[in-house]
């Protein structure tokens, strides 16, 4: 599986409007609802929030990867959000997060879920990629960056 199979303009929001963690989770889940990727946003919020309660997925250096395994999706689903001003996501380094990858997967696709998470983790280790991503101004620019 290529991460590009999951990156579509209708699941990318630049800039995000939220200024608080919970609002951001709702905003990204709503984005997936509007894109027709999910049908039960409340169920998604509950599992994503439950995972955050076990420990923030704000990894530091401006990156957060909220994720969950849930029956509320039938396939691997990815939303990308960028908040140029940053949001307090209770990240490990105490810094605001600016780039958010929300990854959801059904319970029977753990292998693909791990592949998707690994690829996102690998991408975020590239300082050049992240610098360009944070300065993207449209979903189309984000997709183009992933295609390089």
């Amino acid at each position: 599986m290529s991460i590009l199979d999951l990156v579509t303009e209708d699941c990318i929001k630049v800039p995000l409007e939220s200024t608080r963690k919970n609002d951001l989770l709702h905003e990204m889940i709503d984005l997936l609802k509007e894109a027709g990727k999910i049908s039960d946003p409340d169920a998604i919020y509950q599992v994503v929030r439950a995972r955050e309660d076990q420990g923030s997925t704000g990894l530091g250096e401006g990156i957060a990867i909220p994720h969950a395994k849930t029956d509320a999706v039938t396939d691997i689903t990815l939303a990308i959000g960028i908040s140029p001003q940053g949001i307090d996501f209770e990240s490990l380094d105490g810094e605001d997060a600016k780039v958010f990858f929300m990854i959801l997967a059904p319970p029977d696709k753990s292998g693909l879920h791990i592949e998707a998470l690994s690829e996102v983790a690998r991408l975020t280790r590239s300082a050049a990629f992240m610098r360009t991503l944070i300065h993207s101004e449209t979903p189309a620019e984000v997709v183009e960056l992933f295609q390089e």
Binding site: Q54, G55, T57, L59, I65, H67, L92, G111, I114, E115, L117, S118, A121, R125
Partner: peptide, 17 residues
């Protein structure tokens, strides 16, 4: 693919559970 699993723990995306 335990290599990928370990990477996710090291990069703190996954917690132990």
């Amino acid at each position: 693919n335990t290599r990928a699993l370990n990477d996710l723990v090291k990069s703190r995306i996954f917690i132990a559970s």
